[in-house]
Design a binder for these strands. Sequence first.
DNA 1: CAGTCCGTGTCACAAACTGACAGCACGTTG
DNA 2: CAACGTGCTGTCAGTTTGTGACACGGACTG
Lengths: 188, 188
Amino acid sequence: MPRSGEEVRQRLQQAALELYLERGFDQTTTENIATRAGVTERTFFRHFADKREVFFDGEAQLRDVLTRAVAAVPAGTKPLPTLRAAFHEAVPLFEQNRPVTEPRSRVIATTAALQERALAKGAALVRALTDALRARGVDEQLAMLCAQVGMDTCTIAFRGWMDDPSEGLHAQLDRAFRELRLAAAALR
Amino acid sequence: MPRSGEEVRQRLQQAALELYLERGFDQTTTENIATRAGVTERTFFRHFADKREVFFDGEAQLRDVLTRAVAAVPAGTKPLPTLRAAFHEAVPLFEQNRPVTEPRSRVIATTAALQERALAKGAALVRALTDALRARGVDEQLAMLCAQVGMDTCTIAFRGWMDDPSEGLHAQLDRAFRELRLAAAALR
DNA sequence: CAGTCCGTGTCACAAACTGACAGCACGTTG
DNA sequence: CAACGTGCTGTCAGTTTGTGACACGGACTG
């Protein structure tokens, strides 16, 4: 698949990451990125819809892995256990991407515009998980709630793992879902 | 014509809402809004940081009501029941704002840029709720998880109430939190 | 070899912001 | 009363983001 344009695309992503790390997102122009990648500013916008999008390219892959993992869970499993299993399935992907994800997260943490886009990407993932649950026969309202809540729980686990990788992501996931179960049991 | 400032601010909000409804967010320029409000484009940016922010001004009030409501819940109440009570406390505010919120939501639903900002505002609210819970002695990780999950549950209830107000927001809240409890009980 | 995509460069341009400075109404102070 | 500071606005010039239109050149296809 990789036409000659795929190389340019990767160079643009690399250049953007470098520049955002060096001088920050706001101090980097799209022209800076294009120049470092050896292309024109116009070409940058042919590959990425805007200055933020260049930072969120792996999301599609994660979405595919997660939705496939949801579909692979044995039928009859309840929504939240299904999601927990799916997230465990995606752990290798997270671990493998960590060297890229870690500096990326640092940049995002200091840039409001990137935080917004990250939230939007998370919302898209929640929509995909909602659809995956509905395909398993889960009621729409329940699917929305569980997809959102499951995603939050995974995010909490992920953040804990980023701060301190020693426990491992699997353990963080189990801990977060256990906390969720206990917290929700206090309702009623 | 140096108006009091606050009046100009409200005229700008009104003009923005009207124009976004008439021709859509993307087809409306900041100059359009300023002109309809009887001021200069520069003045628009003195009151609002960007074109989206003019749409999200009530968020601060909701945040104050919710954090105060959390603080007012009897000590010893667990995090999620605390939040559920706080959301019930805010129902009158939601009901009172509904005539404004409803057309606003329609615009947001059709505009990606506004959805992003809405997510960011929701995240800010979650941070405020997290702090409010921590002030009650809740562990940080647990506070983050509950604030996020509680917010999601409230959002689901809110959406259901927007689609069909006949049941009332109180009932939608109770139903959503009941679903959350049942879904989480299936874990382990 | 001719045709046709596809990615890119170039140019022109609208729209979203920002910084600097000046003016005008207002209340305060001497 | 007059001088003065303060807060809001207008004006102007400028940067940056993002888009549309068109032409060039290489790669693939028939």
